[in-house]
Protein backbone atom coordinates (compact mmCIF):
# COMPACT_ATOMS: atom_id res chain seq x y z
CA UNK A 1 0.00 0.00 0.00
CA UNK A 2 1.39 3.36 -0.98
CA UNK A 3 0.64 6.67 0.66
CA UNK A 4 0.94 9.88 -1.34
CA UNK A 5 2.79 12.03 1.16
CA UNK A 6 2.37 15.69 0.18
CA UNK A 7 6.00 16.37 1.03
CA UNK A 8 7.81 13.17 0.06
CA UNK A 9 5.70 11.82 -2.76
CA UNK A 10 4.24 8.32 -2.91
CA UNK A 11 5.87 6.15 -0.26
CA UNK A 12 5.36 2.60 1.01
CA UNK A 13 3.03 2.32 3.98
CA UNK A 14 5.73 0.72 6.07
CA UNK A 15 7.34 4.14 6.52
CA UNK A 16 4.28 5.27 8.45
CA UNK A 17 2.63 4.59 11.76
CA UNK A 18 -1.12 4.75 11.98
CA UNK A 19 -3.36 6.23 14.61
CA UNK A 20 -6.84 5.87 13.14
CA UNK A 21 -9.84 8.20 12.93
CA UNK A 22 -8.81 11.71 11.90
CA UNK A 23 -12.20 13.27 12.37
CA UNK A 24 -12.04 13.42 16.15
CA UNK A 25 -11.31 16.77 17.77
CA UNK A 26 -9.93 17.17 21.24
CA UNK A 27 -12.76 18.62 23.35
CA UNK A 28 -12.65 21.65 25.60
CA UNK A 29 -11.35 20.34 28.93
CA UNK A 30 -13.37 22.99 30.72
CA UNK A 31 -16.61 22.26 28.89
CA UNK A 32 -19.71 21.29 30.84
CA UNK A 33 -19.53 17.62 29.81
CA UNK A 34 -15.79 17.33 29.41
CA UNK A 35 -15.72 13.81 30.84
CA UNK A 36 -18.33 12.57 28.38
CA UNK A 37 -16.77 14.37 25.45
CA UNK A 38 -13.33 13.07 26.27
CA UNK A 39 -14.70 9.54 26.50
CA UNK A 40 -16.11 10.02 23.04
CA UNK A 41 -12.85 11.53 21.79
CA UNK A 42 -10.62 8.80 23.15
CA UNK A 43 -12.80 5.72 22.82
CA UNK A 44 -15.47 6.14 20.17
CA UNK A 45 -13.64 6.50 16.92
CA UNK A 46 -15.06 6.17 13.46
CA UNK A 47 -14.67 2.66 12.09
CA UNK A 48 -16.52 2.67 8.79
CA UNK A 49 -16.54 -0.08 6.20
CA UNK A 50 -15.72 2.21 3.32
CA UNK A 51 -14.17 5.65 3.12
CA UNK A 52 -12.21 6.51 6.22
CA UNK A 53 -10.28 9.65 7.16
CA UNK A 54 -7.35 8.56 9.21
CA UNK A 55 -4.15 9.84 10.72
CA UNK A 56 -0.89 8.45 9.40
CA UNK A 57 2.46 9.65 10.69
CA UNK A 58 5.32 9.66 8.21
CA UNK A 59 7.66 8.51 10.91
CA UNK A 60 10.45 7.25 8.67
CA UNK A 61 10.11 10.22 6.35
CA UNK A 62 9.20 13.86 6.90
CA UNK A 63 7.68 13.27 10.36
CA UNK A 64 4.44 14.87 9.28
CA UNK A 65 1.05 13.73 10.43
CA UNK A 66 -1.14 13.17 7.41
CA UNK A 67 -4.86 12.88 7.03
CA UNK A 68 -5.23 10.00 4.61
CA UNK A 69 -8.51 9.20 2.93
CA UNK A 70 -8.63 5.48 2.36
CA UNK A 71 -11.26 2.85 1.75
CA UNK A 72 -11.22 0.17 4.44
CA UNK A 73 -12.93 -2.37 2.17
CA UNK A 74 -10.62 -2.02 -0.82
CA UNK A 75 -7.58 -0.28 0.75
CA UNK A 76 -7.70 2.23 -2.07
CA UNK A 77 -6.08 5.49 -1.05
CA UNK A 78 -7.90 8.54 -2.37
CA UNK A 79 -5.46 11.12 -1.10
CA UNK A 80 -3.47 12.56 1.74
CA UNK A 81 -2.89 16.01 3.14
CA UNK A 82 -0.89 17.45 5.98
CA UNK A 83 -2.84 17.47 9.19
CA UNK A 84 -1.31 20.75 10.27
CA UNK A 85 -1.91 22.37 6.90
CA UNK A 86 -5.49 21.18 6.89
CA UNK A 87 -6.21 22.70 10.27
CA UNK A 88 -4.54 25.91 9.21
CA UNK A 89 -6.73 26.11 6.11
CA UNK A 90 -9.86 25.70 8.17
CA UNK A 91 -8.96 28.57 10.42
Amino acid sequence: MRIPCPLCGERDSKEFSILGDATVKRPDPDGPDAAGEFFDYVYLRDNPAGTHCELWFHEAGCRQWLVVTRNTLTHEVAGAELSAGRKAKKR
Binding site: M1, S13, I18, H52, E54, H75
Partner: peptide, 8 residues
Amino acid sequence: LDMYNSYA
Protein backbone atom coordinates in the same frame (compact mmCIF):
# COMPACT_ATOMS: atom_id res chain seq x y z
CA LEU B 1 -1.64 -6.63 12.80
CA ASP B 2 -1.23 -4.71 9.57
CA MET B 3 -2.07 -1.72 11.81
CA TYR B 4 -4.56 0.10 9.55
CA ASN B 5 -8.33 -0.16 9.88
CA SER B 6 -9.58 -2.76 7.44
CA TYR B 7 -12.54 -4.92 6.58
CA ALA B 8 -10.76 -6.54 3.65
